[in-house]
Design a protein around this nucleic acid. Structure first.
Lengths: 198, 198
DNA sequence: ACCTGAACACCGTTCAAGT
DNA sequence: ACCTGAACACCGTTCAAGT
């Protein structure tokens, strides 16, 4: 006779995320997750292949949440592309500050563990890709988006990891970086002066 | 009566690095390190406070090695600063490709674990700082160096983590990024047209 | 002073037995 | 069909006992 479900995959992922954000990856044990969802550790394996699999699921959920923030930040197609770049970069950064451990999971877990689906990746890339295309034109949009994403993820990593320790104003360095990218991308777009309106 | 030393801190760190590079962080167990240096696991605690401490030591050693590569890549003070930036960026990237797990340690371990000394950090920052200063002038050198470092570490992370999956040519994206930064920094230096020669 | 075996607490994971 | 206790292999770490 079947037992009624005492938890769900959604609940498990949510519990894992909460534990991760409260205490870091070391505290994310199967036992802690089980306790939080009101079940014994072995039962988790009915919904999750392994701890690594759970980590991958949390990373995917986090990437999804991040994408939502980026989309909300990116302005409408008509608005000033430089201001849009600023807004997207700031959204990136404030998300990472809000949820540093989840964010760290998305970008620093090895490929074998956290490997988001093709579809989710395309979805997540769109806001940055759009902003980049508006600045630099369609031909270099992918390269421009990769440059922006690389800079943003790197900056955030260095900041969260406390690697900016030579003094100076980190805020100023952030603005300096955004402006440099915005100026550079706009200058690089001279061969495509007309924004594509299609 | 004292027992003759059967290993050393240097040997332990080297063994840990080798294990890390061969099998990733998960395989870096105290037992594996002990076995490699010819000792039992508890003996390691005579030279190393904890596994996390050993990880921190490996990260420091790696940062030291990386710095050497960056220094070798950075040209003499007189040479073309744009070419120097290219060379430093390439050195960064090829080091990360050679030793991805060690590199990952340096930049993605939380502050509480891997926290390199002030002196080592200053030493490591110098090559990029010099290149940046040559391009942008002294006033914005720190911000410029942070922008370059952020882009490079981010790009490498995304590449190593297999996050560039939207097609396109990753090589071209790398060149695009370097050129954008070089052009942007040079343009930003217009208020300091004379390179500082001192 | 360094090294060791034994022990402890704690993991992730498996599995037979329950309902 | 889901849940559980018991068990297994394997961690990091401590410590008293050896030399």
């Amino acid at each position: 006779m079947p037992t009624p479900d005492r938890t769900s995959l959604t609940e498990i992922v949510a519990a894992g995320t909460a534990i991760l954000e409260a205490g870091g990856l070391d505290r994310l044990t199967m036992q802690a997750v089980a306790e939080r969802v009101g079940v014994r550790a072995p039962s988790l394996y009915k919904r999750v292949r392994s701890r690594d699999h759970l980590i991958a699921l949390i990373a995917e959920q986090t990437l999804h949440d991040l994408t939502e923030q980026l989309e909300a930040a990116a302005g409408l197609p008509g608005s000033d592309p430089r201001e849009n770049l600023r807004a997207v970069a700031r959204a990136f950064r404030s998300f990472a500050r809000d949820r540093p451990d989840s964010y760290g999971l998305v970008f620093s877990q090895p490929r074998e563990i956290a490997n988001p689906s093709e579809a989710l990746l395309a979805f997540a890339s769109k806001p940055v890709l759009d902003v980049a295309a508006a600045l630099v034109g369609p031909d270099d949009a992918l390269e421009a988006a990769r440059t922006v994403t690389a800079w943003a993820t790197g900056f955030i990593f260095l900041e969260l990891g406390g690697r900016f320790r030579l003094g100076g104003d980190v805020e100023r360095a952030f603005d300096f970086g955004v402006d440099l990218l915005a100026d550079g991308l706009q200058a690089a777009s001279k061969s495509h002066p007309e924004p594509v309106a299609r």
